[in-house]
Simulated scan of single mutants.
Amino acid sequence: MYVDDNPASVADTPVTSAGHAATTLAERMVDVAALDAAVKSGDVILEPEAGERLLTTLRGQADSAAEWLNRLRGMSRPVPLGTNWVGQAMSGKFERRADGEDVSFVNVLYQYHQMLVKAHDAVAEAIARYQTSEEGSAQAFQRVSSKF
């Protein structure tokens, strides 16, 4: 896969549409990792109503990405462009672009799907932390108010 834990590898990406998409995706994956870290540290919590809207959007995008991923995997086969050497070379090139290169459509879309799933999980955790915080605050208030 193209995107890994080493951000320095982003600079080595060829300047193509797929390469640009992979670079942009790598940047967004860093953003999602930062969100996840902020949620885990307790710096970010989400009110359930707003969080649910965000979860719905992320779930819809992840479902769409999974659907496109299945379609793209079906395209990663040799294209019948003839038996001459040019047709064979172009057929292989199209197949590798669909799936097989580091910045192939399948690899980039797979990573996008994984990023959406991680973002969804981070948002769900932020909602749960909000609810836990609210319940704790309500219990503390009830203890204080019962003393009066």
Score class of each variant (00 low, 15 high):
residue 2 Y to Q: 10
residue 3 V to S: 13
residue 4 D to A: 10
residue 4 D to T: 08
residue 5 D to Q: 15
residue 5 D to F: 13
residue 5 D to K: 11
residue 6 N to H: 13
residue 6 N to Y: 12
residue 6 N to Q: 08
residue 6 N to L: 15
residue 7 P to Y: 03
residue 8 A to V: 03
residue 8 A to P: 00
residue 11 A to G: 04
residue 14 P to Y: 07
residue 16 T to G: 07
residue 17 S to H: 12
residue 20 H to I: 02
residue 21 A to Q: 01
residue 22 A to N: 06
residue 26 A to M: 03
residue 27 E to V: 11
residue 29 M to D: 07
residue 30 V to K: 12
residue 30 V to F: 06
residue 31 D to N: 02
residue 32 V to N: 07
residue 32 V to I: 11
residue 33 A to D: 15
residue 34 A to W: 02
residue 37 A to D: 03
residue 37 A to S: 13
residue 39 V to C: 04
residue 39 V to I: 10
residue 40 K to Y: 12
residue 40 K to P: 00
residue 42 G to S: 11
residue 43 D to L: 06
residue 45 I to N: 08
residue 46 L to H: 13
residue 46 L to V: 04
residue 48 P to S: 10
residue 49 E to N: 13
residue 52 E to H: 15
residue 53 R to S: 09
residue 53 R to H: 14
residue 53 R to M: 08
residue 53 R to W: 00
residue 53 R to P: 03
residue 57 T to D: 09
residue 57 T to K: 07
residue 58 L to N: 02
residue 59 R to Y: 02
residue 62 A to T: 00
residue 64 S to H: 04
residue 64 S to W: 03
residue 65 A to V: 00
residue 69 L to N: 05
residue 70 N to G: 15
residue 71 R to P: 00
residue 71 R to E: 08
residue 71 R to Q: 12
residue 73 R to E: 05
residue 75 M to I: 03
residue 75 M to W: 07
residue 76 S to R: 05
residue 77 R to S: 15
residue 78 P to L: 14
residue 82 G to V: 09
residue 84 N to Y: 14
residue 85 W to K: 08
residue 86 V to L: 14
residue 89 A to P: 01
residue 90 M to S: 04
residue 90 M to L: 10
residue 93 K to E: 06
residue 93 K to C: 09
residue 94 F to E: 01
residue 98 A to T: 01
residue 99 D to E: 01
residue 100 G to H: 02
residue 101 E to W: 13
residue 104 S to W: 07
residue 104 S to I: 01
residue 105 F to E: 03
residue 105 F to S: 08
residue 105 F to L: 05
residue 106 V to K: 06
residue 108 V to E: 02
residue 108 V to I: 03
residue 111 Q to S: 08
residue 111 Q to P: 01
residue 111 Q to D: 11
residue 111 Q to W: 01
residue 111 Q to A: 14
residue 113 H to W: 07
residue 113 H to R: 03
residue 116 L to Y: 06
residue 120 H to Y: 09
residue 120 H to Q: 13
residue 121 D to C: 04
residue 121 D to H: 10
residue 122 A to Q: 12
residue 122 A to K: 08
residue 124 A to E: 10
residue 125 E to C: 07
residue 127 I to N: 10
residue 128 A to L: 11
residue 129 R to C: 06
residue 129 R to A: 14
residue 130 Y to N: 12
residue 133 S to I: 06
residue 133 S to N: 11
residue 134 E to Y: 12
residue 135 E to F: 15
residue 135 E to I: 13
residue 137 S to I: 08
residue 137 S to N: 14
residue 138 A to V: 13
residue 138 A to R: 15
residue 138 A to G: 08
residue 142 Q to R: 15
residue 145 S to T: 11
residue 146 S to Q: 15
residue 148 F to K: 08
residue 148 F to T: 12
residue 148 F to E: 01
